[in-house]
């Protein structure tokens, strides 16, 4: 086992993990944060997306024991006390959630995009979300949700 210290959603966390454990498993099974979803475990679907030291990554491809000392932000860090983050609210308002499984990863990816690029073009949104698969919506409502979130967050 490896003793690992992480800063998760602003809180210092310490846990012991086996050598081969992914950050996704650590978040879900040890740290009580099941928002990041486990689907493909090979970086294809994006449903486990988190920010690691402010960079969007697939948590299934992060070796937890190698991430000692890193800062992690999960979907649980967005919104607080029953108040949705503007990106989350935009997904609800645009009808961009169907089964909901891909939604946390898309919310994190959209949040990461809008932080860097407050007013993305539709093509920039498509490229930024190209690592997140949704099998329900056909993506149209998701693209609309990101533009809606951009307007809400930056009042354009």
């Amino acid at each position: 086992m490896n003793d690992v210290r992480l800063r998760v959603n602003g809180v210092a966390r310490q846990t012991a993990v086996p050598d081969h454990e992914s950050l996704l498993t650590t978040l879900r099974e040890r740290l009580g944060l099941p928002g990041s979803k486990n689907a493909c475990e090979q970086g294809e679907c994006g449903s486990c997306s988190v920010l690691m030291d402010s960079e969007l990554v697939c948590s299934c491809l992060v070796l937890t024991a190698g991430a000692d000392g890193r800062a992690i932000e999960t979907v649980e860090s967005l919104g607080a006390d029953g108040v949705l983050h503007p990106v989350q609210q935009a997904f609800v308002d645009a009808g961009a959630v169907q089964c909901g499984f891909c939604t946390p990863g898309l919310i994190v990816a959209a949040y990461a995009l809008l932080r860097e690029n407050p007013e993305p073009s539709d093509l920039e949104v498509r490229e930024a979300l190209s690592g997140n698969l949704c099998r329900c919506t056909g993506y149209g409502t998701i693209l609309a949700a990101v533009q809606r979130a951009s307007r809400a967050m930056y009042r354009r």
């Binding site: 994006g46 997306s49 960079e55 969007l56 990816a109 930024a128 190209s130 690592g131």
Partner: peptide, 9 residues
């Protein structure tokens, strides 16, 4: 290469 997530890692 891949996607933003993959290119970041």
């Amino acid at each position: 290469v891949g996607s933003p997530q993959i290119r970041n890692a």
